[in-house]
Structures are given as structure tokens and as C-alpha cells.
Nucleic acid binder design. Structure first.
Lengths: 164, 164
DNA sequence: GGCAATGTGTTATGTAATAACATAATTGCT
DNA sequence: AGCAATTATGTTATTACATAACACATTGCC
């Protein structure tokens, strides 16, 4: 956690996942990688584990600091794992926070096509909610300009229900 | 300019503004600030000038390096000016590039309400096109979650017409 | 003039990310 | 199994991005 508090209420609503659910998500991720001929190695798994542990976006250096029980990892180890996990669609980078959050498309047995995800990011408690949206207006404007879209970043900053 | 070229064609289509147009935009910005009881000071004006000089997002340290004819500015000077200009709606921060681009709402006599701007960002030539969009789906999802949106970042990365 | 508010200059530091190169593990081939 | 090619990791160093803190200057207002 690392949020600047502009409020006095507690933030317990920003839950952690319990270890059982984390384990389930990790083995599901493992399976998904193998299905695509990619290797889910130890540092990748550890990085994903640390990100799944929060339901708020996690900073790269928080992962680095917590990576080993007895000391920090080297930055490239973690940045490489983050790049891999993002390519696999297991995590998303939150540009406006320089942080990473687990993709919710893989939670609770959901199966979601590769999607342009949008995020509702609470400035108070730091929580993140992923929502799937289509963007007809952007597609239309892009088409009108002859622009070929490869990927879209869509992040709404504000206050979540619990923090309003 | 600071774009990684994945192509061999030229990028002349990423025009610079001529000095006459820049001057017009600067005095328009000056007027706009005064109308709101804010001061358009020398470092703010210089920062805006350097950003208007490109039609692609400009890095903070590019502004810093070019600030004085004979040497760099100190980072806080420029970062403070950038924060001010963004608050005034004269520039936008592009999160996915860590860069800043002039707001097109003030170009060519346009008068635009404060808007959630979206950007079409070319990965090849670095050019930026600002488009105004409404986001009914996001508004809807936010409302459904009880989320109060304060501001939205919407950035499409891809290839512009000239670079496809 | 004198005070409060706002803006700037300056030093130092904090935070985020990658380059480059050496070593190790895995895969596929014969 | 032996070997080469590929992929991944370890490690050191450096680069890029951004702000804290405090001193000084300028402006607006009474």
C-alpha cells in the first residue's frame, strides 16, 4: 500500500486476496502460459503472486522490495517479468500511476477475449476496478483520420463508492 | 524530436508551427490566463512556446534542455510551469509517453469547453492528434459502481495515416 | 509602506526504467 | 546422449522522470 490519504475513513474495503485464491489464480496462469507455449518461470510467478496479493495497482519497486523474504530483487528481474505478464494478458500497466494490476479477466473462472480494458481508480484508497468497454467514438474518429489503433489506455481517476 | 524509427519513410508530416502562429497562440494564452486572474509569467510562457513548437508530445527534459539559449533550466522551473499550464487547460499530459502536448482546443480560434480529450498517438512519427469524445459506457459503468469520475485519460497508440 | 500571497531559483534527493553483457536453463535436432 | 539455438536470468551500471525543501523575489492589496 502507498496511497496519500485525503480522508479519515479506513480503507479496509481494499481487500487482499486470501492465499487460497492466489494459489488458484497462479496455477491458472501457469496453465494459460503452457497452453501458449510460454514458460511460467519462478520470477514471473513470484511477481504475479505479489501483484495478485493486492487489489490495487502495485508499484514495480514494491514488487522489487518484497520479492525475496530477505532483501530486494534487482530491477531488471522484475521489469522483465512485468513485461512478460503484460504480454500474456495476466496484468495491466496503469499508466497514470506507473503501477501494475492483475487482469480481472482471469478471476473466478471468467474467460475473456483480449480486450481494451478500462480502469476506475480511486484516488483515496487506491483501489482499482477493471471494466470492459467498447469505444465506438474513438474507433470512428480514428477511422476518419486514417489512424490504425494498436492499443488503448483508458483510465478514470476519482473516488470509489466507499470513499465518496 | 525523439522517436524510435521502425520505418524508413520520412516524417515531415509532423510539422512544426511557424513562429507567427506560435506568437498568436501565446498571446491568446496570455489573454486566457488574465481572464481567469492567473499570471502568465516568463517561464510559463517559455515552456508553452517550446511545446507549441512541436505538434508531437514533448518530454519535460527536452523543454528543460532548450529552455535557455545557453544551457538548461532547473527541473522544478519547468515542472512547475507544466503543472500550471495543464491546470489552465493549455497543455495535456500524455501518460503513456511521459510527455506534454499543446491543447488543440485553443488553436485557430476554437473555443472548447473543458473536455475529456482523447489522443491518437503515432508510434512511428510521434505525432499526436487530439479528438473530443464522450464516453457513455464508462460513465455508465462508473455510475453502476458508485464511482465518481474526476478525470479520464484516454490514449490510443498506433500508426497515423502517413505512417501506415 | 507593510503585509500576505504567489511565484521563482537552487540544491539535493527520490523514484522509475533500461542498456549491456555474462551466465544458465530449456528446447529441438540428429 | 550430444550439441546448437533459443530463451531466460543474474549483475552492474546508467539513464530518465519527478519532487521536497527552503531561500529569495515579485505582486496585489490595505
Amino acid at each position: 500500500m502507498s496511497m496519500s490519504h485525503a480522508c479519515d475513513h479506513d480503507h479496509d474495503h481494499a481487500h487482499h486476496l486470501d492465499s487460497g485464491r492466489i494459489a488458484a489464480r497462479l496455477s491458472e496462469a501457469q496453465r494459460l502460459c503452457e497452453a501458449q507455449g510460454e514458460r511460467m518461470t519462478a520470477p514471473r510467478l513470484r511477481t504475479l503472486e505479489l501483484i495478485l496479493g493486492e487489489n490495487a495497482p502495485v508499484k514495480a519497486y514494491d514488487v522489487i522490495d518484497r520479492f525475496h523474504p530477505d532483501g530486494a530483487a534487482k530491477p531488471p528481474t522484475v521489469y522483465r517479468a512485468l513485461a512478460f505478464l503484460e504480454q500474456m494478458g495476466l496484468i495491466h500497466r496503469i499508466e497514470s500511476l506507473n503501477a501494475f494490476v492483475a487482469c480481472q479477466g482471469h478471476a473466478d473462472g471468467q474467460v475473456v477475449q483480449p480486450h481494451a480494458a478500462a480502469f476506475l481508480l480511486c484516488d483515496c484508497c487506491g483501489s482499482s476496478e477493471e471494466v470492459a468497454v467498447s469505444l465506438p467514438e474513438i474507433d470512428q474518429q480514428a477511422a476518419a483520420s486514417g489512424f490504425e489503433t494498436r492499443r488503448v489506455t483508458l483510465e478514470a481517476r476519482g473516488l470509489c463508492k466507499a470513499c465518496r
